Amino acid sequence: MNIKAIAFDTGGTVLDWHSGVCQVFSEIGTSHGLDRDWHVVTNDYRRLAMQGIVGQVKPPFNMDDIHRCCLVQVLADHGLQAFTSEERSRVADAWHNLSAWPDFPMALSQMRSRYPVVSFTMLPLALVVNVSRRNCVIWDAVISCEMIATYKPHPQAYMRAASWMNLKPSEILMVACHNFDLNAARECGFRTAFVRRPQEWGPQGPPDPTPHPDCDIVVDNFVALARCLLEQ
Rank of each mutant, 00 (worst) to 15 (best):
A82Q: 14
P105C: 05
M106H: 14
T42H: 06
L15Q: 10
V223F: 11
Q204R: 00
R90D: 08
N130V: 05
C22M: 14
M106L: 14
A5K: 10
V219L: 05
E87T: 10
R191H: 12
S119T: 02
T121Q: 07
N166M: 11
A162Y: 01
G33V: 04
S85T: 11
D216C: 02
V131W: 01
T10G: 03
N166V: 06
S26C: 07
C69T: 15
V54F: 14
G33P: 02
G20C: 10
S89T: 08
A149W: 11
I28L: 12
D214F: 04
C70N: 12
N43I: 02
N183R: 12
S19H: 09
K58L: 11
W95G: 01
M147R: 11
M122C: 07
S31E: 15
H178F: 12
A141L: 12
Q156W: 06
L173Q: 06
S109H: 11
I143F: 12
T42S: 07
V72M: 10
L182N: 03
R47T: 14
V72D: 13
H178I: 03
D77K: 13
S19Y: 02
E87N: 10
S119P: 05
D208G: 09
N97W: 09
F190E: 01
A100N: 04
A149H: 14
W38M: 03
R197L: 10
Q156P: 01
I53Y: 04
P198K: 02
A157L: 04
C145Q: 01
D16V: 04
V21G: 02
A161K: 05
A49N: 08
D64Q: 13
Q51T: 11
M122H: 07
W17S: 00
C22K: 14
I6R: 02
V137F: 07
D214A: 14
V41G: 03
F120I: 02
D77G: 04
L123Y: 05
T84V: 11
V54N: 05
L230K: 01
A126S: 14
P60T: 08
V74T: 13
G55V: 10
S132T: 07
P102Q: 03
I3C: 05
G11F: 13
Y158R: 08
A161V: 00
R134V: 00
Y115L: 10
D181Q: 08
P102I: 07
G202Q: 04
C215M: 12
T121L: 05
D214Y: 01
D93W: 06
V223G: 14
G79W: 11
S99T: 10
L229C: 11
V40M: 10
L230M: 13
A100L: 11
R90I: 08
Q156S: 12
H32R: 08
W17G: 01
A126T: 13
A184T: 07
F61E: 11
M122P: 02
Q51I: 09
N130Y: 06
S119Y: 02
V128M: 13
E187L: 14
M147H: 15
I138K: 15
T30P: 02
L182Q: 05
M174D: 05
V14P: 00
D93S: 15
S99C: 12
G52M: 13
F222G: 06
V118T: 09
V57W: 09
T121N: 05
C69W: 12
H178E: 10
D216P: 00
